[in-house]
Design a binder for these strands. Structure first.
Lengths: 210, 210
DNA sequence: CAAATAGTGTCTTTTAGACACTATTCG
DNA sequence: CGAATAGTGTCTAAAAGACACTATTTG
């Protein structure tokens, strides 16, 4: 491709450009636990995983690369949240950060406890680089997605019972949900597998899938 | 500030960086007309107004600068929609575009017909640079904001009657709304000025403000 | 069988939609 | 006064919440 020249005969690369980073709030629900977020260590500091955008790379691919490296997880579908653009935000220079949200089933996370940990979102303290705001937006976005659709970001892996789905939605919402309303809202959006769950006390529950 | 060096003794500016642009869907409702968008001319091509981000500039300030120049309008509150990052999107080089939405009262737009025009969103044809997708997102975002709150982006300028508010919301929604439900939803969120509108046929309507 | 959980039926309360009626202005 | 628009009251239909009852499993 021939280099573009503007009306001053300058290429785009003759003008100052910012570095662009991606930072991602990876949310998950450990078994029996509350909605949690993945933090990684750099030095003695815990932060959301992130990386700089490489040349010609898509933002989503940069997110996947950072998560593959730092949490051994792949095949996610990152969603953009917001661009943080305060020129003084990063002391390394002029850096735009594109915040992302991703959700991953607990079973697919493989983390090295020295480099990463998963913390309930209510227990996360102060994070550097304004990462608390990213986390807040991620949680709000996740909650609003889960308000009307069954597990839209696929935090459940295979087939599941209505009870498991409701437990998940309650963990995401951070509060108990009503059984009747939940059933009425979700059941029409699900397909039964024909199978039932076994090995539990009580009447076996039907299994569903998407 | 001392220049930051990474573990390879390189500054951030030693790595390739993209140019960053902002593009904005400016939405307005002309009197008695449908929801419309501001388009500007470059050469013989009509597109959404946009500009490149200057060094150290905030994204919102770049948006305001481009709108001041191209539509003579100031004092808006741009909202980020999405970052478009396809490396092949712009033939001038590697350009990230941060799409924005802004709403402006018709009365505050002063446009030069040779350089800009306002077109109903249903009549906009194919735009370059993937700007149709920005417009679609802008309209969807505006509609969802207007679903539950009275004129949240302040398309109305001063005091207004409930009928004027409903006309506005119908223009935004692109469909008629029910009088009873609209009233029940909006009236509790408004404050009356104590004044009534004059000069119209029929019982004078109360004026409201935010 | 008792305890536990799944699934269904039905009543009540709340909300949304429909519509009639009154109030106040202009021409 | 008649036409037009604003504002209120009330009936009905739909949705949400509450709760009781039946069904089927484990121990």
């Amino acid at each position: 491709m021939e280099t573009y020249r503007d009306s001053h005969n300058r290429a785009l690369t003759d003008y100052p450009r910012p570095s662009v980073a991606v930072d991602t709030a990876v949310l998950t629900v450990p078994p029996g636990a509350a909605l949690s977020v993945l933090l990684v260590r750099t030095g003695d500091e815990w932060r959301l995983p992130g990386t700089f955008l490489h040349e010609g790379e898509r933002l989503a691919d940069a997110v996947l690369r950072s998560l593959q490296t730092k949490a051994g997880v792949s095949g996610l579908s990152p969603r953009q949240l917001h661009v943080f653009d305060d020129p003084a935000r990063d002391n390394r220079g002029w850096v735009l950060s594109v915040a992302h949200l991703d959700a991953v089933p607990w079973s697919r996370l493989s983390i090295d406890a020295d480099l990463a940990r998963v913390v309930p979102v209510t227990d996360v303290g102060a994070l550097p680089y304004g990462h608390n705001e990213i986390l807040d937006r991620a949680v709000a976005t996740l909650r609003s997605s889960y308000a009307s659709a069954p597990d839209p970001l696929h935090l459940l892996d295979g087939a599941f019972t209505l009870r498991q789905l409701q437990d998940l939605h309650e963990a995401v919402a951070g509060e108990p949900l009503m059984r009747d309303s939940f059933r009425r809202a979700m059941e029409p959006q699900l397909r039964t597998t024909g199978e039932v769950a076994a090995g539990t006390v009580g009447k076996p529950a039907r299994l569903f899938e998407f």
